[in-house]
Design a protein around this nucleic acid. Sequence first.
DNA 1: GTGAAAGCGCTAACAA
DNA 2: TTGTTAGCGCTTTCAC
Lengths: 339, 339
Amino acid sequence: MTSRPRLADVAARAGVSMKTVSNVINDFRHVAPETRAKVQAAIDEIGYRPNLSARNLALGRAGLIALVVPQLDMPYFAALSGQILEAAARHNWVVLIQQTGEDTSVERDALAGHFPQRIDGLILSSPRIRPADLRKRTDRTPLVMLGERNFQGIAQHVSIDNVAASETAVNHLIERGRRRIAIIGTRPTDRQHPRLAGYRRALRAAGLPESDDLIRPIRNNLGEEGELQMAALLAEHRNRPPDAVFCVTDWVALGVIRALQTHGLRVPDDVAVVGFDDIPYGRAATPTLTTISPDRAAIARLSVESLLAQMEAAASGTPYEVSEQPVGYELVVRESTGG
Amino acid sequence: MTSRPRLADVAARAGVSMKTVSNVINDFRHVAPETRAKVQAAIDEIGYRPNLSARNLALGRAGLIALVVPQLDMPYFAALSGQILEAAARHNWVVLIQQTGEDTSVERDALAGHFPQRIDGLILSSPRIRPADLRKRTDRTPLVMLGERNFQGIAQHVSIDNVAASETAVNHLIERGRRRIAIIGTRPTDRQHPRLAGYRRALRAAGLPESDDLIRPIRNNLGEEGELQMAALLAEHRNRPPDAVFCVTDWVALGVIRALQTHGLRVPDDVAVVGFDDIPYGRAATPTLTTISPDRAAIARLSVESLLAQMEAAASGTPYEVSEQPVGYELVVRESTGG
DNA sequence: GTGAAAGCGCTAACAA
DNA sequence: TTGTTAGCGCTTTCAC
């Protein structure tokens, strides 16, 4: 056995044509059961495995979908990527993971289709891409956007309902008797921010006052940033600190907890904290973190399936109607809001 | 423009042959500068990008290397994978990430070369694979093993010196005046465990007593497991708890810290804690975690380069001598051992 | 239900 | 230094 067995070798061994072997491999109907068995036996005997480069070349596809995320070592994206890998594998796709390192130009390049390889589809999870960027896009590669921003009618978007989820989180704080609730991770003027919108809706529904000085922005999604902003908040409200904080991500929430503990405040007794994302650390932290847990498996599955649908639409000339595709989420109550 | 431009289109436009275009694309010497410029102009004008399926088919390679890790959402592997992605991209490889989910049979399948695609090389990071598994391997795909176990002369192994690194970590505790140092994450009888060996070496060098009841195993690398084992340790040594704990991973260390705080012990005042791996959470935890930080970028780079060297050796018929390839590490001192 | 042959886009002999 | 051409291994018309 000098080289790997080819389809022709299987055909020779089974005494059938290449077409028949191909039919068996691709699970086509209209193959006589005994022919199928004979071919399968030959495949097993010589240990044949198809050469994907050749198949993809013949089919005119790349066999590759790209997943663009900020960084793989950010826990939310690591978990998400893991799920997408599995969903893609179920459709025989290899996932080309591209890290942007928070570099907007890399994200724009990805949108424009500038990849080291040709790709069949693109899943883009990038907090920085705006609807305007998408409108400029001319590349026709099937695209799915992830993340909290809305892309109404511009691109297929798979996401939880961030407004409702945030409202749920803040309602939970209100139900636990909290009245002075801060939000860390957005600026009061950001009208497009769904998590801020949910926060406001919950306060309003409960008849609680909204005050912009309990809203603090972050420059990036890091624990250090949460720590900094929480410290600033405490400094500004020395006499009357908030009794709860809603953080736009778990990662920020961990920093917030650090700042609170550093300043001698107890979590949740003095200040309750809720995060967002349900990253693995939330369960190992002290205290464990209450959070919104999106159904990541569903996000992965629906994203991959949408790519497939877009390809099929393109192949058949049917237009593909983009939509906002909602997925489920759950409030996970842990120690940081009193268990 | 009905279909994507091909190499032949570039050749026609530039008025040269396909061979010349190929030479330019692959950056061969012996192309007249002006010819090169002309071809490059044509490439830019029609927006040509090579079809990798066709190239790989012609070259008889897959253009793919596989990376096998337990789970992408385990922070150490997420960070490592991110680095390997980048190192591989520099050599024009796409990385097929395969998650084993701690399933040993999946790991064995990977070793045997059972992938959904053909691959050019394999990087395997799996705590469960033993030298014996490797000896049975007949598949000739270039292989690099990662992780703490040694594979002397059986497979290329890229890793920090785990014995020395552990000794460094424990020495640090000793220098801070700790005398009763526990280790969590191994059983006293495991003679092959490099981190246990380093722990023992440090104690012996300092003339400290070794006692097997300060050594606790874990069933898997989880915070919950660290918490459990630390609680058990405290229960057994109620009167005289250890004054420091060396944990075989950061993930376990976070659980250990949880258990200590739950039992009213202060970290590091009462008990100092050192972890291993330098996962991102260590910086966001309270207290921040002292740890051994392996040079992950070097691990990634050397792994990919070794695959390349193995392929070249195979192509030229030269034997490839496997070795233990050491990479650097660093002790990062943070709050959990007193800053 | 099965077979023969053309072609997917690229590389690399071999020629010139 | 550049051109010609035969494959790489698979799918897929089209005939049987």
